[in-house]
Design a protein around this nucleic acid. Structure first.
Length: 672
DNA sequence: CGGGGCACAT
DNA sequence: ATGTGCC
């Protein structure tokens, strides 16, 4: 049948033809809330703190809330509906608000009882928003996020609308064009137009093969599904942001000093936000937009460069140290010069700085670092709850032992627990009716907003008094001197050595308790560089030798700063040296996977330390290297991006010793 | 309407 | 690194 003719057919018939038929999303009840004139309301009330209140309020009744911007939220109330269905007499039930395309009074409740319950819940929640926060809102009730969002605006303001399943086609057809479908933006709309797809209905009818050919398999299917009003995407609570950025646009910036000044301003405010967040940014990205005569394309042509943030700098952000910004500006300017050739003229209209790869700071419980952290509030700023990360003293477990306290997983788990039946503290509002009780009793299990922020005491100002001067002066700030002193002396010695060298001794040695169980066989030995406390000369050595990460678990952004923020550009000499066999006689005996040249450039005390350890630990080194070379399954997982960012970087010192590796090469290491 | 700030796919 | 999406 000619697709064009089919366009006149009932569109459910079309849905059952090639389209990815959603089998059948009739079960979920999804709400979409859209706050009326939200910014104006907030301003009127003169309380900017209100901006996050709606989300926090909504979540107290149902944890499955997804934020969309500041003034919109999705909520999956399916479980709430089912629960209430059991308690509700259908004859007492009626829709609240509008029903799209129908007179509400003319619609029987029985066929759509679950949506009706959804409409009741939506009304109650809107009332909670109004009475508690003095915010009016619109709501949509439907079986998917897409439809709930589309229908929520049918009656504005301060009203709500339910979409019955049979009205889906009418709603989709009411849209003026494909780019009115959430998920189809300006750009895709333009490409569709070029294909002759001008209306949503056109898109519904368009041959899927063609869509796939143009947009790719997944995207092509998604576009047509969206056009048909089919959306199976789950409501996903977002958790804390994965990046923090700040940007500014302007008519013209054309000198380096202007760039530096602007970058400094941006980084200053960004650092403050980052400090409040409490996490450690591992990557800095600079993005810019050049002036273009093309008034349209310039909005979409942004160029960016990114690089790792040295650990010590990241830590200074967290502590609010004034040196953080200058150091970051220096790094950012190097990024800038990577993008812009300043020997010629340039004309920028936008600068953006972004912190990403945000890492929580809580060390593994199994990490030795937990023995050094102050238990009292004096050191709370060094630790927050959250995922495990590498330990602050750079001694950590094999990354494979790390867990993923994934927000989504947590919330799913949560959803499987029955709703709390009572919570006297926060349920007073609307307590007279059937509004579900807030789930306060369970709230501790629900992923919170960013872990408690701890602002900026400097650990170096605390707790050092009881330590002998010569030791005290060398203890890293995050080490609790009291705990340190309580350790057996030989452990103290090892730690002191590791602090001086800027690298820990192997974990097998360090983790040994006084009673000392042997390490497990086959457990890889890892060396960790504590960049935060690495002495300057060690840092220099690291960079001068142009080491690069060899770690397949890491994205490029996780690489140590092999080029930026430090002076060491890779020299032709070192490159050449890597490509030829070195005279072994001139070197101490190093493990086979250690580049002797690189090793030779280490500070001598570090060399000594490492050699001593290698003598003891040689067998395990190979294990470690093999592991490092093995691609991580996490990397390709669906949520791999998130997982990789959250996962523990393999900080094995060994990776610094590897010869230069081809960029993006995932196979065996290559010699340039 | 457009800018700032975020997520995600490739 | 870039492109696209959303508010």
């Amino acid at each position: 049948m000619d697709p064009v003719e089919e366009g006149e057919a009932e569109w459910d018939a079309l849905d059952s033809g090639g389209v990815d038929r959603a089998e059948e999303d009739g079960q979920r009840v999804i709400l979409h809330f859209d706050l009326d004139c939200f910014y104006a309301q907030v301003e009127m009330i003169r309380n900017p703190a209100l901006r996050t209140k709606p989300l926090e309020l909504l979540m107290s009744y149902c944890p499955l809330v997804e934020r969309l911007g500041f003034d919109e939220n999705f909520m999956d109330v399916t479980e709430m509906v089912d629960k209430r269905m059991k308690e509700t007499n259908i004859s007492d039930l009626s829709f609240v608000g509008h029903i799209y395309g129908h007179e509400a009074s003319a619609v029987g409740v029985r066929e759509h009882s679950r949506l009706a319950v959804g409409s009741v819940i939506a009304a109650e929640l809107r009332e909670a928003l109004r009475s508690r926060l003095e915010l009016t809102s619109c709501a949509g009730v439907a079986n998917s996020k897409l439809l709930a969002k589309l229908v929520s605006g049918a009656f504005k303001p301060n009203q709500q609308t339910t979409l019955l399943p049979q009205s889906r086609g009418t709603l989709m057809d009411s849209l003026s064009g494909p780019c009115k479908v959430p998920g189809i933006g300006y750009r895709t709309g333009a490409r569709l137009k070029a294909l002759g797809v001008l209306s949503v209905r056109d898109l519904q009818m368009f041959p899927l093969r063609e869509l796939i050919r143009v947009f790719g398999e997944a995207n092509g299917k998604r576009l047509q599904s969206l056009a048909c009003g089919t959306d199976l995407s789950p409501v996903t609570p977002a958790g804390p942001p994965q990046s923090l950025s700040d940007e500014d646009s302007f008519k013209k910036i054309s000198t380096v000093s202007e760039v530096e000044s602007k970058v400094k301003d941006l980084l200053s405010s960004l650092c403050e936000r980052m400090r409040k967040d409490g996490r450690l940014p591992q990557t800095l990205r600079l993005t810019l937009r050049r002036a273009t005569t093309d008034t349209l394309s310039r909005w979409f042509s942004r160029e960016s460069r990114q690089c790792p943030i040295p650990k010590h700098t990241a830590h200074r952000i967290r502590t609010g140290c004034s040196e953080a910004v200058p150091q970051l500006v220096s790094i950012a300017m190097k990024l800038f010069h990577r993008v812009v050739d300043v020997s010629g003229s340039f004309h920028l209209t936008l600068l953006n700085v972004c912190f990403s790869n945000l890492q929580n700071k809580t060390p593994s419980r199994t990490s030795i670092s937990s023995f050094f952290t102050h238990s009292a509030a004096t050191a709370a700023h060094t630790l927050t709850r959250g995922q495990e990360t590498e330990a602050d003293v750079s001694l950590c477990e094999d990354s494979s032992g790390f867990t993923q306290p994934d927000d989504t997983q947590n919330s799913k788990e949560f959803m499987h627990t029955p709703l709390s039946t009572s919570s006297s503290s926060s349920s007073s509002l609307l307590s007279q009716n059937s509004l579900p009780q807030p789930v306060g009793a369970k709230s501790s299990t629900f992923p919170k907003r960013p872990a408690p922020k701890h602002s900026g005491l400097d650990a170096r100002d605390s707790g050092m008094a009881s330590i002998p001067e010569e030791k005290c002066s060398r203890l890293p700030p995050h080490v609790d001197p009291d705990v340190f002193q309580a350790l057996p002396e030989h452990i103290q010695m090892e730690l002191m050595a590791s602090f001086q060298a800027g690298a820990s001794v192997p974990e097998g040695s360090m983790e040994r308790r006084p009673s000392g169980p042997a390490e497990q066989p086959g457990e890889p030995i890892q060396f960790h560089i504590n960049q935060q406390e690495t002495p300057q000369h060690a840092q220099l050595a690291l960079n001068q030798s142009s080491w690069v990460v060899h770690n397949d678990d890491l994205s490029a952004g996780d690489a140590p700063n092999d080029d930026l923020g430090m002076e060491g550009q890779r020299s032709p000499d070192s490159r050449a040296a890597e490509s030829r066999p070195l005279a072994q006689t001139s070197r101490p005996d190093v493990p086979p996977n250690v580049d002797p040249l690189v090793f030779s450039q280490l500070p001598s005390d570090m060399q000594t330390e490492l050699l001593a350890e290698w003598k003891q630990r040689k067998p395990a080194l190979k294990t470690s290297s093999r592991r490092a070379a093995k691609p991580s399954p996490k990397h390709t997982a669906a949520r791999g991006r998130r997982a990789a960012a959250k996962g523990s970087p393999d900080n094995s010192l060994l990776r610094y010793f590897r010869p230069q590796r081809e960029e993006n090469a995932t196979g065996p290491q290559r010699y340039c």
